[in-house]
Nucleic acid binder design. Structure first.
Length: 192
DNA sequence: CACCCGATTATCT
DNA sequence: GATAATCGGGTGT
């Protein structure tokens, strides 16, 4: 049911692809919010100029160098949080998968309330949007996502390979040649 | 629908 | 001091 650590101890790009269809579970006291991951991006290390970890360890990117299966949450553009899952293989020093969009499954009314938005297609279709809908902030940085606590990931739907698209990552300037953005084809909850 | 721009602050140089 | 793995509102087509 819950995704175990070995799943994340593999090539970051592969994990990014295979996270599509998995279910994010957010527990807030009595409320359980769930959503299916529909869009991800892989960020590697010294071989990836677009990655936070490209230039080495800093205070912010520390989780990317830590144990796989942990969260990496950072604050950007003065108003948004982005949620990543640390994933990398044995020979990589750092790596993480940015969760860019999810499809709401349960707790939708609560998500609408947190977002102040009624349109379901604008609830969680973007990295900053989904963190707001699920109340993910710095307090959830560096937590173990393989344990059943306030935030974790469980198995969901198998997405056939022909339903997965890859493209250049969004919002970066470097390494636009790398096609490390993955999303479910024709899914209306994908960003943009 | 496309493009433009301001918000707002932690983080890094 | 500049920038940023974004968003939403505005304007124009």
């Amino acid at each position: 049911m819950i995704i175990e650590r070995p799943f994340y101890a593999r090539d970051t790009v592969k994990v990014a692809q295979e996270l599509l269809g998995k279910i994010l579970v957010r527990v807030i006291s009595d409320n359980i919010l769930t959503a299916m991951i529909v869009e991800t991006e892989a960020y590697k290390s010294f071989d990836d100029p677009a990655s936070h970890s490209y230039k080495g360890l800093t205070k912010r990117n520390k989780p990317m160098f830590g144990e796989v299966g942990y969260s990496y949450v950072y604050f950007t553009y003065g108003n948004h949080y982005c949620f990543n899952i640390v994933a990398k293989d044995e020979k990589s020093s750092a790596g993480a998968v940015l969760i860019r969009a999810v499809e709401p499954l349960s707790g939708i009314e609560i998500m609408k309330k947190k977002r102040g938005v009624d349109d379901i297609y604008k609830l969680t279709s973007g990295p900053g949007r989904l963190t707001q809908a699920l109340s993910i902030d710095k307090s959830l940085n560096e937590i173990d996502l393989t344990r059943e606590c306030e935030l974790y990931v469980i198995n969901g739907y198998d997405i056939p390979i022909d339903k997965i698209e890859s493209a250049s990552r969004i919002g970066i300037r470097d390494a636009l040649d790398k096609q490390w953005r993955f999303y479910i084809k024709d899914n209306p909850f994908v960003s943009r």
